[in-house]
Simulated assay, not measured.
Amino acid sequence: MTESEALRRPGGRSARVRDAVHQAVLETVIELGVGKVGIPEVSRRAAVRDSSIYRRWGTRENLLVDALLGASEHALRVPDTGSLRGDLSAFASDLIDYLNTPLGDGLVRTLASIPDSEDTRSARDEFWTSRLRTLMPILTRASERGEVPPDVDGRILIELVIAPIHFRHLLTREPTDPALVSVLVDTAIRAAQTTAHGRPEDR
């Protein structure tokens, strides 16, 4: 079997190469920062030829996005606290903690700064679609408990909570603390209840 064939296989050596390269990217981000990640350094750490990395990922940006998105999929749990407010608060708090790690910070800065190519756009869209789909049970449980109407727009509700956190982390550098989490969650829940069936006092 040729190296090219091995790299295309979903398991076996292909999986080992992907894991080794991803691990090398993550180690470099943690030790040196996302700006220092380069294919030659990743090649050295992973013991994989840089030509193989270029053939599979094409660019440094594609490699960064693939590795960081893959790592983030396992970094944020989907809480089940028994209430919508508790679930959203727990998730928001975990997100804040993650963004304050080298990997979390590296991910959002990479996504915010990389050129918008077909590959990076596809990877980004796939990640957010998957992330939002993973979080939907929070809204399903909340609807079953009567905390929000069944026709609530789950994506908008989640975005109302997480968007200000990303905004502060990336742009304003203002504090992201429990007080902020409480305000965001309460505001998002009120908005969901209001927009689904009109103003609460009209119901």
Results as ranks from 00 to 15, higher is better:
residue 1 M to T: 06
residue 6 A to I: 01
residue 8 R to P: 02
residue 10 P to T: 05
residue 11 G to R: 15
residue 12 G to D: 04
residue 13 R to Q: 02
residue 13 R to A: 02
residue 14 S to G: 15
residue 15 A to P: 03
residue 16 R to L: 08
residue 17 V to Q: 01
residue 17 V to C: 02
residue 18 R to I: 13
residue 19 D to W: 03
residue 20 A to T: 03
residue 20 A to K: 01
residue 21 V to K: 02
residue 23 Q to P: 02
residue 24 A to M: 04
residue 24 A to I: 09
residue 26 L to Y: 05
residue 28 T to N: 03
residue 29 V to S: 06
residue 30 I to G: 10
residue 32 L to S: 14
residue 34 V to I: 14
residue 34 V to N: 04
residue 35 G to I: 03
residue 37 V to A: 10
residue 37 V to R: 11
residue 38 G to C: 07
residue 42 V to W: 02
residue 44 R to N: 10
residue 45 R to S: 10
residue 45 R to W: 07
residue 48 V to Y: 07
residue 52 S to V: 14
residue 53 I to G: 06
residue 54 Y to N: 06
residue 58 G to S: 08
residue 58 G to W: 00
residue 59 T to I: 06
residue 60 R to M: 00
residue 61 E to Y: 07
residue 61 E to V: 10
residue 66 D to L: 03
residue 66 D to T: 14
residue 66 D to A: 15
residue 67 A to N: 11
residue 67 A to G: 14
residue 70 G to M: 13
residue 71 A to C: 10
residue 73 E to W: 08
residue 74 H to W: 11
residue 79 P to D: 01
residue 84 L to T: 01
residue 87 D to W: 00
residue 87 D to G: 03
residue 88 L to I: 04
residue 88 L to G: 01
residue 91 F to T: 00
residue 92 A to Q: 01
residue 97 D to T: 06
residue 98 Y to T: 01
residue 103 L to F: 01
residue 103 L to T: 08
residue 104 G to L: 00
residue 106 G to T: 04
residue 106 G to H: 05
residue 110 T to M: 02
residue 112 A to T: 03
residue 113 S to Y: 03
residue 118 E to I: 09
residue 118 E to Y: 03
residue 119 D to K: 05
residue 120 T to L: 00
residue 122 S to P: 00
residue 124 R to L: 08
residue 124 R to C: 07
residue 124 R to W: 02
residue 124 R to F: 06
residue 126 E to I: 12
residue 127 F to S: 09
residue 129 T to L: 09
residue 130 S to M: 05
residue 131 R to I: 00
residue 131 R to F: 09
residue 133 R to Q: 12
residue 135 L to A: 11
residue 141 R to D: 15
residue 141 R to T: 12
residue 141 R to P: 03
residue 146 G to A: 13
residue 148 V to E: 12
residue 148 V to K: 11
residue 154 G to V: 10
residue 156 I to E: 15
residue 158 I to F: 15
residue 161 V to W: 08
residue 169 H to K: 15
residue 174 E to K: 12
residue 174 E to W: 11
residue 175 P to S: 13
residue 177 D to H: 07
residue 178 P to N: 07
residue 179 A to I: 00
residue 179 A to F: 03
residue 180 L to A: 09
residue 181 V to M: 01
residue 188 A to V: 11
residue 189 I to W: 07
residue 189 I to G: 12
residue 191 A to N: 11
residue 192 A to E: 13
residue 192 A to M: 06
residue 193 Q to Y: 05
residue 193 Q to D: 11
